[in-house]
Design a protein around this nucleic acid. Structure first.
Length: 738
RNA sequence: GGGCGAUUAGCUCAGUUGGCUAGAGCAACCCGUUUACACCGGGUAGGUCGGGGGUUCAAAUCCCUCAUCGCCCACCA
């Protein structure tokens, strides 16, 4: 027996060496598996593309859970002989990474990005991203992830950038990407636009002020933002509102806090006559709903707030003032003039920017958008119910592939969440005024003067003097094509043909909108296909009390620390057992410790079996005692059960069953009952018992391997006859009982 | 305002399509150590499965309703 078995299992000494062994074998790469005869050339494929972690720092326990879930699926399918690819990568995460580096820069050098300039700043970001990347790769390895490093990708590397440009141009040519001047969400701190999904609504108390613009203005209005009222160009009332009918169509001039206003009274059915005074001051430039209304009624737009959330009106009292200050000035003025009718406190949902926490300022701006309501037709279609050439919108495409079951979200309660997002989707603003990201592949001619000429292309135009659009793309644009940009698209590579669509996308419920929906949007349009067949949604890893892990609470645990303490296998189990898809996991160290004990149990039971196999010919099955037949039959039942659980993504049940069977049946009962038989004089019975134990152990190791790859591989290696084989590519036990 | 989830042992949670005396980890109590394992074994105690109603031979599981907690979405000024 190998000396290693004489000591308790030591994950620290074992894990890195085992991972290296796997890497050296090359079996993470499906091409190597085919080459070495591990899997058939024409075997069914199984592919997962890793949700690329942001290069903003280190991995947290949520990432660890993601890696474990995917690794279990991948190892299972690889052992089943499928041509299995798990493709790793990282995400440049544009705005998240840039703002992180900006924070560091400000803290350490008291500089902003403009102090460095675009080129130098980007160098800093790239350095930061590279360091993060290296840390992340190290962590991914520590978890035992069997990803194919030879295919590693980055959302902002050259190949992906090419794919992004090709995708952009196609969408531009089809009229799906367009430039428009409209009110967008502006983050005054981050100095960029953000999409609707990057907004966090925060509930706050706010005052609603009811007042008139001037003494002789006939209608009172209410608002929480009096400072924007200097930009009003209309007052809207409901068409059927008798109180105001006589004013509709009339126009009034007023002097509002020193600012001349010209207000038209309009009737619009979006106004709720029951709410407030039943009349709304319309500010086309600083409210999305008012902007829409102004378009319907052809109202003039008057911008009064700039990118720094300062007032731009010429009135000395207000000019240059922050909006918050301006609000106070105006309220004071209203009081003084006797125009303020009442002030009430109300709960208000205020929009803040996800990354900077700054209150979002709606501003009119010229930006790039994706139109999800424009009819297009697909050149090819593998989408059930959609033929090439059919007129269809992106929204409809997004609905179709879920409705027809081609892509399934697990648990399916998230279908509803998905649909409600799709239904309420407004034009997706994809341009950002940040520097880190994919530059928009559009150029403007500057040498002709006068009329602006626009060129969208994969490369810069050759003739004339052109300037590229300074903006970059929303990070989710490049993330949206991740399942195939990683496989070589737009080239028709072997990888692309073999592995796309992918089998599973595994991700958290917090990014269904950001990512899952965007991937479906981009893939159905660009490929006429689905990006993945199954979406496995995992929940959040929380602390023992169910609180979200966060730096400020100080309850965030570094998965690496847990791994050091308890071993990767124990951590893996604790992230899986009892955690159904979509559920949060309140992780405690006690739970991890329990699986460390389990690892030790496996180790010791294995030692017992291995040290009692003397004289057994493992190649030739002896005549089995009835009780051994029965035990092995039970094992077949377990195999079947576990296999079906894995096929149906019930990892949490499979892991639990294996735990219980190994400990409370195999170790507690079967091994205990085998002791007298192994000591006894009945040679035939002893041989039968040995065979049973041997079969039991090797089968259990195979079944456990996807969950606890390190310790099972290590034990496998210490069973005589296995010196040259790797458990990782052993055949999965047959699920049909013999 | 709309939607979703949760409520099971002292604590944190499982319980797959309704089906054997409802499970795990931790905590508690008792007994056990000349060998696979004290990172242990054996045993004990602990639950009217949030309340109420219904469907069924059978419900923690399905339906209705109420309560509490949590999450997501939303341009009511």
């Amino acid at each position: 027996m190998n000396e290693k078995f004489l000591k308790p299992y030591n994950p620290k000494e074992t894990e890195d060496a085992i991972y290296k062994k796997w890497l050296d074998s090359g079996f993470f790469d499906p091409d190597v598996c085919v080459e070495k005869g591990i899997c058939d050339k024409d075997a069914e494929k199984f592919s997962i593309v890793l949700p690329p972690p942001n290069v903003t720092g280190i991995l947290h326990t949520g990432h660890a859970a993601m890696l474990v879930i995917e690794d279990i699926m991948v190892r299972f399918e690889r052992m089943r002989g499928k041509k299995t690819l798990w493709l790793p990568g990282t995400d440049h995460a544009a705005i998240a990474t840039q703002s992180k580096v900006e924070k560091i820069l400000m803290k350490e050098e008291k500089k902003n990005r403009h102090d460095l300039g675009r080129e130098e700043f980007l160098k800093r970001v790239e350095k930061f991203a590279q360091d993060s990347h290296d840390t992340i790769v190290g962590q991914v390895k520590k978890m035992g992830s069997s990803v194919d490093w030879s295919r590693e990708a980055f959302t902002l590397d050259e190949k992906r950038n090419f794919a992004v440009r090709v995708a952009f141009k196609k969408m531009y040519d089809d009229g799906l990407i367009y430039r428009d001047y409209r009110v967008i969400n502006w983050d005054p701190k981050g100095q960029t636009t953000i999409s609707d999904d990057e907004i966090i609504h925060e509930e706050r108390k706010a005052n609603v002020y009811t007042f008139k613009y001037s003494k002789d203005f006939p209608i009172s209005i209410a608002t929480t933002r009096p400072e924007t009222k200097v930009g009003d160009t209309a007052v809207a009332v409901h068409p059927d509102d008798k109180r105001y009918k006589k004013y509709v169509g009339k126009e009034y001039d007023a002097e509002f806090c020193g600012v001349p206003l010209h207000i038209k009274i309009i009737a619009d059915k979006d106004v709720d006559p029951e709410y407030g005074t039943g009349a709304v001051g319309v500010t086309p430039a600083h409210s999305m709903i008012d902007f829409e209304m102004s378009k319907r009624h052809d109202l003039p737009m008057k911008q009064v707030i700039n990118e720094y959330a300062q007032m731009t009106v010429d009135t000395p009292a207000l000019k240059g003032k922050k909006t918050k200050v301006a609000r106070e000035i105006i309220v004071e003025w209203l009081e003084k003039e006797g125009l303020l009718e009442k002030t009430e406190e109300t709960d208000q949902n205020i929009s803040t920017a996800e990354r900077t926490g700054c209150v979002v300022e709606p501003l009119p701006k010229l930006q790039w958008f994706i139109d999800t309501n424009k009819e297009i037709s697909l050149q090819h279609s593998n989408i059930k119910g959609v033929k090439a050439g059919d007129k269809i919108t992106l929204k409809e495409l997004m609905r179709t592939v879920i409705n027809n079951g081609q892509t399934q979200i697990l648990p399916d309660r998230f279908h509803k969440v998905y649909f409600s997002w799709v239904d309420n989707l407004r034009p997706w603003c994809i341009s950002r005024q940040i520097w880190y990201g994919h530059r928009i592949p559009v150029w403007y001619r500057t040498d002709k003067g006068g009329k602006e000429e626009i060129y969208c292309g994969i490369e810069a135009p050759k003739d004339g003097i052109w300037e590229q659009d300074p903006d970059t793309l929303d990070t989710w644009f490049s993330a949206g094509i991740w399942t195939f940009s990683t496989l070589g698209w737009p080239d028709e590579t072997e990888d692309f043909k073999t592995y796309h669509p992918t089998n599973v996308l595994e991700t958290g419920y917090d990014i269904i909108f950001f990512w899952v929906a965007r991937m479906i949007l981009m893939t159905t349009y660009l490929l006429g296909d689905i990006p993945f067949e199954n979406v496995y949604i995992h929940g959040l890893v929380r602390d023992k009390q169910g609180r979200k892990m966060s730096k400020s609470l100080g309850n965030a645990v570094d998965p690496l620390e847990l791994l050091e303490k308890y071993g990767a296998d124990a951590l893996r189990m604790s992230l899986i057992v009892g955690v159904p898809p979509g559920n949060d996991n309140n992780l405690s160290e006690e739970k991890i410790r329990a699986y460390k004990k389990f690892a030790n149990k496996i180790w010791n039971a294995s030692r017992f079996v291995v040290s009692n196999l003397d004289g057994l010919d493992t190649d030739k099955q002896p005549k089995l005692a009835k009780k051994d037949e029965k035990i092995l039959h039970e094992l077949d039942e377990l195999t079947k059960d576990v296999t079906e659980d894995l096929e149906n993504f019930r990892l949490y049940l499979a892991a639990d069953k294996l735990y219980h069977y190994f400990w409370h049946t195999f170790a507690d009962i079967i091994i205990e009952e085998s002791k007298p038989r192994l000591e006894g004089d009945d040679e035939a019975d002893k041989t039968s018992c040995q065979w049973m134990l041997y079969t039991m152990l090797t089968t259990m190791l195979k079944l456990l391997h996807p969950f606890m790859p390190f310790i099972t591989e290590e034990i496998w290696d210490n069973i005589s006859g296995h010196e040259k084989s790797l458990l990782m590519v052993e055949k999965w036990p047959n699920k049909e009982p013999k």
